[in-house]
Every structure is written in structure tokens, then in C-alpha cells.
Design a protein around this nucleic acid. Structure first.
Length: 289
DNA sequence: AGAACCACCTGGCAGC
DNA sequence: TGCTGCCAGGTGGTTC
């Protein structure tokens, strides 16, 4: 279940191996992902070069420039190259992306290979096919990216930002945190965990959060995500080198999935409830309205 | 505006 | 042991 920390981990792991690489094309074995894989991805990617990798929320973005096949070394006038669009990759809920040899036999659910110069490829494995592999044109801001909210690890996100976002909102604070049009990258796990660390009841109406509690919650969100990224780094080597499947990083949760177990802080039994169809976990003693 | 639901998909697990 | 059926996850969408 890739959330922001795992996507960030993938990004950091792949960046040194993929930046500047020319693409030979793509192999699409199964185009039926969350949305159909861009038609003729092979033809569209062949001859492109990866200028840089970025992350936006849970989306991994490969910025592409055109290279001239007849001119392997672009002249100064060509630099930085003609924009060729950006490849949008989403890992959905079960996806993984790793670097491997292009001639390595694909396993089950290895749906797409992005072929790199030098015999390697980026291989997307996605058993549940909730992910995405879409090429956006250089002239458009893709609809999936155009309405995304603030980056929780960016400089613009803090208690004041959260305070402003939540004013006048009657929606439960947890639902607001999980709304990617407001704040990106916070999935169900980290919404639960961050609210625990901030001592806030997930059901509290967003607009009722005081400014100090917004400060505390913003800090808890950033701490939780940063710690998860640090923990995710340990599986990074496996991920990139392709020695077996990386497990989702070992993470000690305080409330997520711990129904009935004692709160690590006060010993009270963790409670489970459903909000907007999603599981919510809380400590009824430590988290207040 | 927001709640509640649906769709998409399949591995894993509980319960029979 | 084998079957059934539920659940998890993220995102976009519809309906009320």
C-alpha cells in the first residue's frame, strides 16, 4: 500500500539511476489499469530522455524531453531539449516500481516496462491494477494533477495553512486530511496515526479545530510522514536492486489496525469505527473533541 | 457542502 | 482441505 512515504522512497531510489537516461520505448503487457495505459506508449516514449523525476502527492512524474535520434549529443541550442510531456505513474494500492534488467522474465502482474538505454527497465507491478501509467502532453496540465492540494512536507504547509483550509468546514477533520484536493498524500493509515499523535478525535468537525490544535496536527502529520520515509529507506536497496520484493516498511502503528489492543500511551482499548466508508481507529482517552 | 454510496481489482484471511 | 465471502487500499464519480 504505497502512501506518500513509499512513493518518496521510490523517487529517491530511482532518481540517480533514471535521471538523464534515454528511453527506448515501453512494453505494455496489460493496459487495463485504473485508466487505460496511454495508447502507443512505446512509440511515444522512444527517443525521449528523462530530464528529472518528481513527486506530486502520490504521483510519480517523469519529465521528458525529446532527443534527436540522429544527434546523440544535443548541441547547446537543443538544450534543455524540446519538452515531450510527462509520464504520470501512480502505484495505486498494490503497485511497485523497480529497476531491473529488461531481459529478465516478467512475473505475474508485471504490467508495464519502461525501457531504458543500457538494458535496464522500470518495471511496474500492480496486482490489483489500481495504478496508472499515463503520458501527459507538454502543453497541458493533466486533470489529475491540476486540482491537487498542498504538499504536507512542503514549506507552505503548517498550522496556519491547516487552520485556513479548515475554516468554515463541517466535514470531519480526518475526511479533510484525506481529501487530496486540500492536502495530498495523506492516506488512511497516516490520517489515523497523525490524529492520534495530535490528540484529536477524528470525528471532530474541521472548522472547530483551534489554531493551536492545527499547529499540533500539522506537526504530527509531518513527523509521521518523515518517520515513515526514514523507515522506508531501509527497503530502498532491495527495491532498486530488485533482490526480491520489498515488503512495506516495518512500521509501528499506534492506532491503525489495533482494534481492542491497548493504547501505547494510556492502555485504553483502541476503538474502531467507520467514517465515509473508511476504517478509523482512535484512542477514546488520548484523542478528544 | 458534504455524506454515503459505487466502481475498479485481487490477495489474504476469517469462518464455516 | 476447500469453499465462500468480506476486507483493505486510492481516486473519481454519482446521488441525495
Amino acid at each position: 500500500m504505497p502512501e506518500l512515504p513509499e512513493v518518496e522512497t521510490v523517487l529517491r531510489g530511482l532518481t540517480p539511476h533514471v535521471t538523464g537516461k534515454r528511453l527506448l520505448g515501453a512494453r505494455v503487457r496489460e493496459p487495463r489499469l485504473r485508466w487505460p495505459v496511454t495508447p502507443d506508449l512505446h512509440g511515444q516514449l522512444a527517443g525521449c530522455q528523462v530530464q528529472r523525476l518528481e513527486r506530486r502527492g502520490k504521483y510519480l512524474l517523469l519529465e521528458l524531453v525529446r532527443t534527436n535520434p540522429d544527434q546523440p549529443r544535443p548541441t547547446a541550442q537543443d538544450a534543455p531539449g524540446y519538452p515531450a510531456g510527462r509520464l504520470i505513474i501512480h502505484l495505486g494500492m498494490s503497485g511497485s516500481l523497480r529497476l531491473c534488467q529488461a531481459n529478465q522474465a516478467p512475473g505475474p502482474h508485471d504490467h508495464v516496462d519502461i525501457l531504458l538505454e543500457g538494458g535496464q527497465c522500470l518495471r511496474l507491478k500492480d496486482p490489483r491494477r489500481f495504478g496508472a501509467m499515463l503520458l501527459a502532453s507538454p502543453t497541458e496540465i493533466h486533470p489529475l494533477l491540476s486540482s491537487l492540494g498542498v504538499e504536507p512536507l512542503g514549506t507552505e504547509f503548517d498550522g496556519n495553512c491547516l487552520y485556513q483550509l479548515s475554516r468554515g468546514r463541517r466535514i470531519a477533520i480526518k475526511s479533510l486530511l484525506m481529501d487530496a484536493h486540500k492536502v495530498v498524500g495523506i492516506g488512511n493509515i497516516y490520517a489515523n496515526e497523525a490524529l492520534f499523535h495530535a490528540g484529536i478525535d477524528p470525528r471532530l468537525g474541521a472548522g472547530r479545530l483551534s489554531r493551536p490544535r492545527c499547529e499540533r496536527l500539522a506537526g504530527a502529520i509531518q513527523d509521521t510522514l518523515r518517520k515513515a520515509i526514514e523507515a522506508g529507506g531501509s527497503s530502498l536497496r532491495d527495491f532498486v536492486n530488485g533482490h526480491g520484493q520489498p515488503g512495506y516498511f516495518q512500521q509501528t502503528y499506534y492506532v491503525y489496525g489495533r482494534t481492542g489492543q491497548p493504547c501505547r500511551n494510556c492502555g485504553t482499548a483502541i476503538r474502531h469505527l467507520v467514517q465515509g466508508g473508511r476504517s478509523t481507529y482512535l484512542c477514546p482517552h488520548c484523542q478528544t473533541r
